[in-house]
């Protein structure tokens, strides 16, 4: 459910979300976004609902969504995007089980003897688990999945990255 319709389907297809697996919903008003999200969460046939939501969600709505997700077992991903790093919307309390912050980090070191502008490596992100019910906050730096579909956990030492599959159990 993209809030602005700028999502590019061919990029999603490249990471496995092929057109037959995704239904896009465009809701214009915040209350209809909430409504559509809840409607999707109550439907057991979905594997997940991804919603991009700009404004303040509100504690009650957050609680409702958490309940709906809990009853049906459908995972909800609520993306909050802001141009500013310190946007208060990003820190709004909610009823979600986990809350993550995703930031980009420069990708890994180039091959030996690179040209003036080295090529792109696998993208890397810094994942901060800010809040987790019954868990400790933690931070990781991960690398995008490889051909086998595994996310790489980047360790401090460049050539000793441990492979670990990362699962997001957010709701």
């Amino acid at each position: 459910m993209p809030e602005q319709a700028d999502i590019h389907a061919s990029a999603l297809a490249a990471v496995g979300l092929t057109p037959d697996r995704v239904v896009y919903v465009h809701a214009r008003k915040p209350q209809t976004v909430r409504l559509a999200m809840e409607e999707g969460l109550r439907h057991r046939g979905l594997s997940g609902v991804v919603v991009e939501f700009g404004g303040a969600l509100g504690r009650t709505a957050s609680r409702r969504l958490q309940l709906a997700a809990g009853q049906s077992g459908v995972t909800a991903f609520l993306l909050r995007r802001s141009r500013r790093f310190d946007d208060p919307v990003l820190l709004e309390p909610g009823a979600a089980v986990t809350r993550w912050r995703v930031a980009t980090v420069p990708s890994g070191p180039p091959l030996p003897l690179p040209p003036d502008t080295p090529g792109l490596g696998r993208p890397r992100w810094r994942l901060d688990l800010i809040r987790c019910r019954g868990g400790e906050p933690h931070s990781w730096i991960v690398e995008a999945f490889d051909a086998a579909g595994c996310c790489g956990l980047v360790s401090g030492v460049a050539d000793r990255s441990s492979q670990a599959e990362l699962r997001r159990t957010g709701a």
Partner: peptide
């Protein structure tokens, strides 16, 4: 069987609420 019918039922409900053209799939 998913509760409330298959995905078509969900699409109906969303389209009924959000107006025609607001629910779609992407095609290459």
């Amino acid at each position: 069987h998913p509760e409330g019918g298959g995905i078509a039922a969900l699409i109906d409900r969303l389209e009924n609420r959000l107006g025609p053209g607001s629910v779609w799939r992407a095609a290459p």
